[in-house]
């Protein structure tokens, strides 16, 4: 087996080793950092990223991309916290999810039916969502902002003081995504559409339905991520999730999901999200400034995209 073939087949293993290496570096650099508590916190911080990256994974697999996820997550969080007091927790959560679904559907209509380039479409809807959010925030100035207790527990509480409650949400969703991609007709079609739309059409698949559903699911997952995030920070602000946009795409790409579609999976994305979270905490430990992190993210995406392009040629 050539090295290229090995890397292609076992990219997840290589990535997991890199992750272990990072953790190893942390224990060497700051002995005593890696404790059960640290692990629990790392997992907790990885949840919103992992959820948003899940949506991006679905879209990348199908040959798309969504640049509006950060605005959607912030929006869902803000809608939730500003409506929790008058509407109650359940309705406020549903409102946030509905907003995510709506933007996702709009993206889907543009991309799947009007055949707009995904990048431009989601840039536009992201702008719309962010702007609408700012306007909304000024309309309701003075209204009480409240993060409901249940959401705060979800985002920051730990079961028995050790296992974050957010994992009880993430694990089933992750399982659903992994199994769904492998064992459901819809999952099968996501890969197929991303690999070759023309072949899908020839086989009688109505491609637009698949894309529409994928964009809707991505919007919904971004909203869920926003809700977990607002539980962690315990206060919604208008740019709450903005820093997650690039890492969400990066996590999927690092995890081996092809930017050209048709190859990858959510398992890799989870490792990618954990990798980025641990990298982040290492850089924080080393007091690396924010811009360096940002450049590192950009560099990692570029290097891996180039590497995957060469491996699969």
């Amino acid at each position: 087996m050539t090295l290229a073939a090995f890397l292609r087949e076992r990219s997840l293993l290589v990535l997991a080793l890199l992750l272990a290496l990072l953790v190893g570096i942390i224990t060497v650099v700051r002995p005593g950092t890696v404790t059960p508590d640290w692990i629990a916190n790392t997992l907790l911080f990885a949840v919103p990223l992992g959820l948003m990256a899940g949506g991006e994974t679905l879209l990348l697999l199908a040959g798309g991309i969504d640049l509006s996820v950060a605005s959607v997550a912030s929006g869902a969080a803000y809608l939730l916290s500003s409506n929790a007091a008058p509407l109650g927790t359940t309705l406020a959560v549903l409102l946030g999810l509905a907003a995510g679904l709506l933007v996702g559907l709009l993206n889907g209509v543009g991309v799947a039916i009007f055949r707009v380039q995904p990048l431009v479409m989601t840039l536009g809807t992201g702008l719309m969502a962010q702007g609408a959010l700012v306007v909304y925030s000024q309309k309701i100035i003075g209204q009480e902002q409240l993060v409901p207790r249940a959401v705060a527990t979800l985002g920051s509480g730990k079961f028995a003081g050790l296992v974050p409650y957010a994992l009880f949400l993430w694990l089933p969703l992750a399982l659903l995504l992994i199994l769904g991609l492998r064992r459901s007709g819809f999952g099968r079609l996501l890969y197929a559409v991303g690999d070759n739309e023309a072949a899908c059409r020839l086989s009688g698949v109505r491609v637009w339905r698949v894309l529409l559903a994928a964009y809707a699911a991505c919007g919904l997952l971004a909203a869920v991520a926003g809700i977990v995030l607002v539980g962690t920070t315990n206060a919604a602000d208008l740019s709450l999730a903005n820093v997650y946009l690039l890492p969400a795409i990066a996590a999927a790409i690092i995890g081996g999901t092809s930017i050209f579609g048709g190859r990858g999976g959510y398992g890799g994305t989870i490792v990618g999200a954990l990798f980025l979270t641990v990298l982040d905490s290492l850089l924080t430990l080393l007091n690396a400034p924010e811009p360096v992190k940002q450049m590192l993210y950009g560099g990692v995406i570029l290097a891996l995209a180039a590497a995957y392009t060469r491996l699969t040629d």
């Binding site: 099968r188 890969y191 197929a192 690999d195 070759n196 023309a198 072949a199 899908c200 020839l202 086989s203 009688g204 698949v205 092809s258 048709g262 190859r263 699969t312």
Partner: peptide, 16 residues
């Protein structure tokens, strides 16, 4: 035009 180049024989046959 008809195949999913990166997917398995199984998935290609089962596509319709």
């Amino acid at each position: 035009r008809a195949l999913l180049p990166q997917r398995s024989v199984h998935e290609n046959i089962a596509l319709p």
